[in-house]
């Protein structure tokens, strides 16, 4: 999984556990916070698999980890393989909407709106991050962009859902589009 591979990749140069975590968070723009325990668990699992090995201590006596030959092969393999897209992630939002459409008592429009507001706020959050300088270095910028694009795509998709819902509503129930608009709004 990606955290394992990401840490492995960051061990191109020998590092100790805390440093590794800081490096990861800085590179990814603090988008996926890791706790130190998680880092050490992962490291020990990697050591167990023979991908990393303890490589002495630094000046302050902290033990450093470094890649084994097998680890280097593993890192190269990770970068060479595209991220799997054949099996879409189980998307809670999609499932929620699909179910909502089927359940008559639920106001689908409201579900969409609430989600869109939430996503827009998230997007504004990312935007604030980028404006406050979080995305100034290239790696962090790219990660932030990834999140912005994803949120944007989600909002667009939600807009699209709303339009389709309205069209479906207007063709099936109300010929007057304005009424369905209010229905969608409330």
């Amino acid at each position: 999984m990606s955290v394992k591979h990401a840490l492995l990749a960051l061990l191109e140069k020998p590092r100790y556990g805390y440093e590794l975590r800081a490096e990861f968070e800085q590179r990814t723009g603090a988008s996926w916070p890791l706790n130190v325990g998680q880092v050490y668990t992962t490291l020990s699992r990697l050591e167990r698999d023979g991908l990393v090995e303890a490589g002495g201590t630094d000046a302050e006596g902290r033990s450093l980890y470094q890649l084994t030959e097998a680890g280097k092969v593993e890192v190269k393999g990770w970068f060479d393989t595209p991220v799997e897209r054949t099996q879409p992630q189980r998307d809670e939002l999609a499932i929620k909407l699909a179910v909502a459409v089927a359940v008559p008592s639920v106001d689908v429009g409201k579900v969409v709106q609430q989600q869109r507001n939430a996503t827009m706020q998230a997007l504004q959050g990312y935007r604030r991050q980028s404006r406050s300088g979080a995305g100034d270095d290239l790696a962090g910028g790219l990660v932030l962009d990834r999140l912005i694009f994803a949120a944007e795509a989600e909002i667009r998709w939600l807009d699209h859902c709303e339009s389709r819902l309205r069209r479906a509503a207007s063709t099936s129930t109300a010929p007057e589009p304005t009424e369905s608009a209010e229905g969608g709004a409330r």
């Binding site: 869109r116 507001n117 827009m120 504004q124 909002i155 608009a181 969608g184």
Partner: peptide, 20 residues
């Protein structure tokens, strides 16, 4: 949405009404 996110507030308008 990407440009709207620069704003402090985002207002949705539909059919001449503010909806959100």
């Amino acid at each position: 949405p990407r440009y709207a996110s620069w704003a402090d507030r985002v207002i949705y308008v539909r059919d001449g009404l503010v909806v959100d």
